[in-house]
Amino acid sequence: MLGKVWAGMIISSFFCALINNKINLLGNAILEGTDQAINIILITSGAIIFWSGIMKIAQDSGFTRAISKLLFPVLRILFPDYAQKNNILDFICINFVSNIMGLNNAATPSGIKAIKFMQNMNEISKKKLLEKNAAIFLIMNMSCIQIAPTFLVALRKSFGSNTPYEILPKMWATSIIFLLTGIILIKIFLKNKNKQKNNIIIYDN
């Protein structure tokens, strides 16, 4: 998907430049773009590397585990089907907390384990259809509430923002709206399906 978008952007740029008579600018743009990319990486990498270090301390000291435990009751409400299955909830917790703290290396493996468990529990629609809880779990991963969005804050600072952190509360609220809308959509959609299919949890057509 990204590959096609990327190639499409460059190819359409070429034709646009031809029409607008800006073909001489294209060569320069390539040099400028690569230059900028390196600049961005250099400007933001200090902050990202520092935060990776801090988050590793959080992981090694058991801080992420402690936060996961605090979240357990909340996740039990969100995934009532797994209230008795602590190992699934455990993976969901680790995935969620890792996402919040920006630990992508830890978030993806635990997330994949969680979704595999969820999908395997769903006997009827196994493999062909996405399970309801798995759908909510995916929405949780997409809405990524981040305590410290390092790249974003560093980029804002590099362009001369006086208050690079100012947007965070509004950003968290937006993430929560994303999550809630997703959950509501899934729940509404499922209710109709359940009635038709005699209480079998099926998510998809």
Partner: peptide
Amino acid sequence: GAKEGLECMISILPAIIALITAVTIFKSSG
């Protein structure tokens, strides 16, 4: 952890170069 962060930066570098360059070309061509 900081080493992991550095590795992460290096691993996203190619994608950042590809995409920022594409965006710059896209922008300058109109």
